[in-house]
Design a protein around this nucleic acid. Structure first.
Length: 951
DNA sequence: GACATCACG
DNA sequence: GACGTACGTGATGTCG
């Protein structure tokens, strides 16, 4: 897309201040939305029209020879380092503007212009550097901007053009505005300051006075030295007192003209846009007028894409998420890259495209153990490649080398390939798109080395975008989405690798087969991104995605790689102990039953208890088998039966042994000696994470025997574990959203909330509270959060249905607000099909309008629970996202686990208190500044050698 | 692969 | 009037 041409006095360099334009267009232009789905695109439309005028519909005299759109990179710049309040008073981005940033970059590329940005610098600095180079070469340079901060750059050769008013700003206009010539503008700004950028300046000195003083006493530095000579007392004292502020301000307003550019000016030579790409973009934006104008100017005929414009949308796919199915998948176009030169070409193409799908192939689903086998890239439909890096000869395994089978295929050496890929992965102007990118990030992290980091950024995750759009509606796997949205069935892993014991790992797959499978994944991923990303804003969940989902893969990938140490010896000892206990209990059970049977078989237990022994009160499951769950057996045991008690005890040991002690030991990673779980970021219907392989969110804690397993989760020598958990977060959220004044007051006062509930409900003073009464109140509090029913409450705390019914009635009376909250939650779900948490996540509730009473009642309970559980999950996500930066200064501190309302860290013993001092406020304020709460959040944190003692 | 059971928040 | 009934997860063993 870029071409090279030398810069000389015949050149005309046009530099567009892209970031400034977007803001201005957004506020100045009418709020246009896309016809197909309501996506806000007003700023994109204005921007596209401007590009058209500048690049295509231009007089020969003004036609640029070199052209670029310059953007601010996200994140801090060097200015934040010298002044942390720089631009600190900027308000949050409007929700409707957020999705227009990537679309503006896309528009730039569609018109065939390079989009330039660099981490650490603002667009203004890049413009300043390009303008200086152009000026020195004697070329004409036009800066498309009206930002006064750029006026310092104006010279005989460099002018500015206001893109909205079409007005040129030269030396004369700058003098009119500032009263000094362009080179002195920074001195005026240094004194006068700027409230928009939060430049302090000298308080009380404005532009007028600044010019007066500078004309009288000379340039800023001289003026500051001679400030004592100023006759007016007020001005003199202000100047003397704020010398440092003035110098700092000058530093802030002075644009950098000596950036080491990633793209040299020569490479910004103008080329003709790719008509297909351009029309495709215009079509997707539904810019009919502009399309017609562009077509007329370029003399291009109708394309396939434009004709599609008038065809009816495909039936079948859901109306709101209907996808264009117009570009066929063509696996023949996929390329296998086996030499460095070709890889460089692909990296180059991705750089120019500005967005690239990245997908890693490995030899295992376990990201903490997986070896990299290959990388895929895709920068456009059907333009995808596979770069094999770790394939072995057919018939070999990764561990076995090339001893028996064929020789390994030709591949770029791993380190060389990573060196070539690294600039792409880290380029701030290229968006990396992945599907479940947490996995890829985790694998990349483990290939760091030689002083080189591998933290791809910026990135987007199609799985999380889909999750944010449709939480609770369906799965978010790539294969399913491809079929749903594109009607395209992707090659399944089983098809190429087989199943069961003889299943091959990816490094054993032949390259032509591997290429078709792997490149397709990248191709699909990029298409999903193009399709789904714009929908975030249209659905009103762009902010939710940006603040709670998008940054999470990097954090959780690090947690997974960190892992946690377990005491193998202790777990083995417990396994042996549990096995002994089980054997004893089995003998006892046979004795009582008078026969041998499988204690692990609920079916046989049911038959023995209810058929053979003839016990009363048995209930059948829906499949016709006897129920033998805890509550059933517990009841029989209470009635004096011996066998149920034995079975219950046996089950406890069996559970602990098979699910915990045995399983955990087998899951210790041989390389790290630690256990690495895998977090699912898009699995639940409420926004919670889930943990698997192994699940470290359900390690026992409620029984004494179970806690012995927690003892075996330990810190490294010289370290401690720190467990920090939100106290009663769901009840606090309930008190806030349902506006329960009594409960809010209790939380504000730090009162025991279950005791308070008991006191309110049963009229028992707090001083006379008994554990028994408090326990019942606690069960009711939980019941409320779960969408209580009298039956459920009765069953849970062992009272009659009538009593339970009375309790609930009393609760509603004592906590007015609850009833209204529940009705509102149900009504919202009924009307929209989803509920929205206080932090903006939308959780879809299936079955809320089902004709079946049962399923509807179930959906209604979900509608009551989801705003509470979901908000707690949101807050935790926000806390986790802030954690890496928060704990950065606590050397050696690492985040290891998340258990819904708890975070577990590992830290050198001496740093434990420092860590606690930073994580507690970070967690307690995680909901801010997005929302304020009428109830304080409370976090309790403790350090200990093992996880059990950290509670 | 479905089901029942049970570990957690 | 009967029916089934507290929210969200994942791992395990049995059985067909």
């Amino acid at each position: 897309m870029t071409a090279t041409a030398p810069i000389d006095k015949n050149s005309h360099v046009v530099l567009v201040d892209g970031s400034a334009y977007i803001f201005r267009a957004f506020h100045a232009l009418p709020p246009l939305t896309r016809k197909t789905d309501g996506l806000p695109i007003g700023a994109v439309a204005g921007f596209s029209n401007m590009l058209f005028k500048l690049m295509v519909n231009q007089s020969d005299e003004d036609r640029p020879t070199h052209f670029a759109v310059i953007f601010d990179a996200s994140g801090n710049t060097f200015r934040n380092e010298i002044y942390d309040l720089y631009k600190a008073n900027r308000s949050a981005l409007p929700e409707d503007l957020i999705p227009q940033f990537p679309l503006t970059r896309e528009a730039t590329l569609a018109f065939g212009a390079p989009s330039i940005e660099m981490t650490g610098y603002e667009a203004d600095d890049l413009i300043a550097t390009y303008a200086r180079i152009a000026d020195e070469a004697g070329a004409r340079c036009t800066i498309i901007s009206s930002d006064k901060d750029l006026m310092q750059l104006v010279t005989e050769n460099v002018i500015m053009r206001d893109p909205m008013k079409n007005k040129d700003i030269g030396i004369k206009e700058v003098i009119e505005k500032f009263g000094v010539e362009p080179a002195r503008v920074i001195d005026v700004q240094a004194l006068a300051g700027d409230s928009v950028d939060n430049i302090p300046g000298v308080p009380g000195i404005g532009v007028k006075t600044a010019v007066l003083l500078l004309n009288e006493y000379g340039p800023l530095e001289e003026l500051l030295e001679r400030s004592g000579e100023i006759p007016q007392k007020g001005r003199r004292e202000k100047m003397l007192a704020n010398k440092d502020m003035a110098l700092l301000s000058k530093q802030l307003v002075t644009l950098k003209t000596d950036i080491d550019l990633e793209v040299p000016l020569e490479d910004l030579a103008v080329t003709d846009p790719d008509v297909d790409v351009l029309f495709d973009f215009l079509e997707r934006m539904t810019f009919r007028t502009l399309t017609a104008r562009v077509r007329a100017a370029l003399g291009a005929g109708e394309t396939d894409g434009l004709r599609k414009d008038d065809t009816a949308p495909d039936a079948g796919a859901p109306a709101e998420l209907d996808a264009p199915k117009n570009v066929k998948f063509d696996a023949e176009k996929y390329v296998c890259v086996q030499d460095a030169a070709t890889l460089r070409e692909w990296v180059d193409k991705a750089m120019k495209a500005g967005v690239v799908a990245v997908d890693l192939e490995t030899n295992s689903l376990d990201s903490a153990a997986a070896k990299m086998v290959g990388v895929c890239l895709s920068h456009a439909d059907n333009e995808a490649c596979y770069i094999p890096l770790g394939h072995v000869g057919v018939g070999n395994s990764a561990e076995g080398g090339d001893m028996f089978g064929a020789a390994a295929p030709k591949q770029i050496p791993m380190q060389e390939a990573l060196d070539i890929l690294e600039p792409l992965l880290h380029s701030p102007s290229v968006l990396k798109v992945g599907q479940n990118f947490k996995y890829d990030l985790g694998v990349f992290q483990r290939y760091e080395g030689n002083g080189k980091a591998l933290h791809p950024a910026p990135y987007d995750d199609t799985m999380l975008i889909s999750y944010c759009l449709e939480t609770g509606l369906r799965g978010h796997g790539m294969d399913a989405m491809s079929e749903l949205y594109f009607g395209h069935k992707a090659i399944s892993f089983k098809e190429i690798a087989g199943t069961g014991k003889s299943q091959k790992t990816f490094d054993q797959i032949e390259l032509d087969v591997a290429t078709k499978y792997a490149a397709e994944d990248a191709d699909v991923t990029l298409r999903l991104w193009k399709f789904l990303k714009p929908k975030l804003a249209a659905a009103g969940v762009a902010t939710a995605y940006e603040t709670m989902d998008r940054p999470l893969p990097a954090v959780t990938a690090q947690m997974e790689n960190n892992g946690i140490k377990v005491d193998r010896t202790e777990l083995n000892r417990l396994s042996g102990l549990f096995a002994q206990k089980m054997a004893q209990l089995e003998d006892e059970a046979y004795e009582i039953a008078g026969t041998k049977f499988n204690v692990g078989s609920p079916k046989q237990i049911g038959e023995i208890l209810f058929d053979n022994m003839g016990l009363e009160g048995g209930k059948k499951t829906k499949t016709g088998a006897w129920q033998t769950g805890v509550d059933v057996l517990e009841k029989l045991a209470d009635e004096g039966q011996a066998l149920p008690r034995v079975i219950l005890d046996w089950r406890q040991y069996s559970k602990l042994k098979s699910t915990y002690t045995d399983a955990l030991v087998s899951q210790i990673n041989p390389d790290t000696g630690r256990v690495h779980t895998s977090y699912s970021l898009a699995a639940t219907t409420t926004g919670r994470l889930s943990s698997s392989d192994p699940n470290l969110q359900n390690i026992p804690i409620r029984t004494e025997m179970g806690r012995k397993i927690r003892d075996a989760f330990v810190a490294e020598t010289g370290h401690v574990l720190v467990a920090a958990d939100y106290s009663q977060i769901e009840l606090r959220i309930l008190a806030h959203v349902a506006d329960l004044s009594t409960m809010k007051q209790a939380f504000a006062d730090g009162v025991d909330i279950h005791a308070l509930t008991a006191s309110e409900m049963f009229g028992v003073p707090l001083s006379e509270m008994t554990p028994e009464i408090r326990r019942n109140a606690k069960a009711i509090n939980f019941g409320i959060i779960y969408g209580i029913s009298a039956f459920g409450l009765a069953k849970n705390i062992g009272i009659s249905r009538g009593e339970a019914s009375d309790y609930i009635k009393t609760y509603f009376e004592k906590f007015p607000g609850i009833k209204a909250y529940m009705e509102e939650a149900k009504a919202e779900a009924r009307e929209y099909g989803y509920i929205t948490t206080i932090l903006g996540r939308k959780c879809h509730i299936k079955g809320i309008r089902d004709s079946n009473q049962m399923s509807r009642a179930f959906a209604e309970r979900q509608a009551i629970n989801a705003p509470i559980q979901g908000a707690a999950a949101d807050i935790m996500r926000r806390a986790m996202i802030r954690m890496p930066e928060a704990i950065e200064d606590v050397e050696g501190a690492r985040l290891l686990l998340q258990v819904h309302d708890e975070l577990v860290f590992e830290v050198p013993e001496a740093k434990a208190n420092a860590l606690i001092d930073i994580i507690v406020p970070t967690m307690e304020s995680a909901h801010k500044p997005a929302i304020e709460m009428s109830v304080p959040l409370l976090v309790e944190a403790k350090a200990a050698k093992n996880w059990n003692d950290a509670h």
